[in-house]
Design a protein around this nucleic acid. Sequence first.
RNA 1: GGCGCGGUAGCCAAGUGGUAAGGCAGAGGUCUGCAAAACCUUUAUUCGCGGGUUCGAUUCCCGCCCGCGCCUCCA
Length: 466
Amino acid sequence: MPLRFYNTYSQRLEQFQPQDGRRVRMYTCGPTVYHYVHIGNFRTFAFQDVLRRTLRARGFELDHVMNITDVEDKIIRGAMERGLSLDDYTRQYTEAFLEDSANLRLEQPERLVFATHHIGDMVRMIEGLSEKQHTYSSEGSVYFRIGSFPEYGRLSKINLAGNIAGARVDVDEYEKDDARDFVLWKARKPGEPGWDSSLGCGRPGWHIECSVMAMKYLGETIDIHTGGVDLVFPHHENEIAQSEAYTGKRFVRYWLHAEHLMVEGQKMSKSLGNFFTLRDIIERGYSPDAIRYLLISAPYRKQLNFTFDGLKAAATSIERLRNFMLRLNNARLGAGANPEFEARTDTARRDFDAGLDDDLNTADALAAVFEYIRDANTAMDTGAFREGNLAGAQAFLQQFDAVFDVLKPLVREDALSDAEIEARVADRTAAKKAKDFARADAIRAELLQQGIVLEDTRDGVRWKRK
RNA sequence: GGCGCGGUAGCCAAGUGGUAAGGCAGAGGUCUGCAAAACCUUUAUUCGCGGGUUCGAUUCCCGCCCGCGCCUCCA
């Protein structure tokens, strides 16, 4: 089954094939660093992580660029309020974003690029657009004239003939010919930061950075562009307009958009104030693993309702997965291999891949894992699972974890070492042998206090970090 | 008003023209010094509502109801 993605542009499921053999050029709209990124934002980044890992599992080589928007109205306002330079203000949130990403086990893109490092490139592209008559100036700002790009609206299915009755149309602080034209270069206002350029002193509009950085590092036509659904219009529509007007070529081959994380039936968003940051949730005692699992366990194109019950369920699900991994690692198995069970493993591996291949249907892929775990547990109980079946089962778990990455528990720095734990476990086993259950239970309770759980299985004592 | 997505058990959530995955929670049981883990059984005669097509529809078509998102802050 080939890898297929839903392309927002065509509104269809399409077989994925990069333009350049095995190399995938991919661009992601990253965060605007004016605040801590909330877990709704992280849903999109987690989706991109699953996408990356799935692509690699299929043998593709990634060249993935993600931008950090480090100049923008809210950033400027925030920095001014706090009396900080733009750099000092954005640095702390950029670092927080990277730290949170690491806690969620999100892979770093191959390149992380900053808007403010590409001002010159943006100015050159705006000049190029002006030469091709796609822009006009007004009060020191430069605008893109969408009337000059007939394809405008194809991605978002926006009908330019009108249909915005009932929609809010902001009165812009700058003069525009048409309310839907967008700004490429904003004239500097008193007290604001600005860059001197042939366009005058000012700063870039929001959309231009993504076109510039995507094309600079990945070429004029890229394979995959991702973001949240709220970026479809106007951001991605505008990216297409300016990029294609500039190059005359198709900008993006596959547009992938993640749906929103919801809270009590509404989109989680900063402006609604109904958001949680990763830090908030960790403070409440939940692990980043559980959040990662929750965010990626539902297919990315469906709205996902965030609840703490859901988070608890996610944590319990991870427990089940880890318990199975431990059981495999500690199992005492009969000799030989059972070909029937080996076939069961092969089926599970195929089903898992088929789920991901189907537009990253993680829920379907997970079902394949859990069904397999049940069958494998039963087979270990009955003896149908033999030594020779272990390698296949472990390979499947690795295949699963290469994408989901939730099996390895966090080991805190102040935690007991493996050797210390083993020693206590041996003490307890000795106490048990002597029928000194009080002492055995005391050791177990003491370890539990340190986050170590002991379990007596028929294959011996097993311990794990909670 | 335009465009898009969705409504499946207590909660989360797959899915298909042929009779409902999986997870969590709940109930009963097996195992066990206890605990935990694990396994077994059990929990939707039914997939928002009403029509239609069909031998057969949750799945296709039509209409309706409800929720959410976007329509220039937005992942």
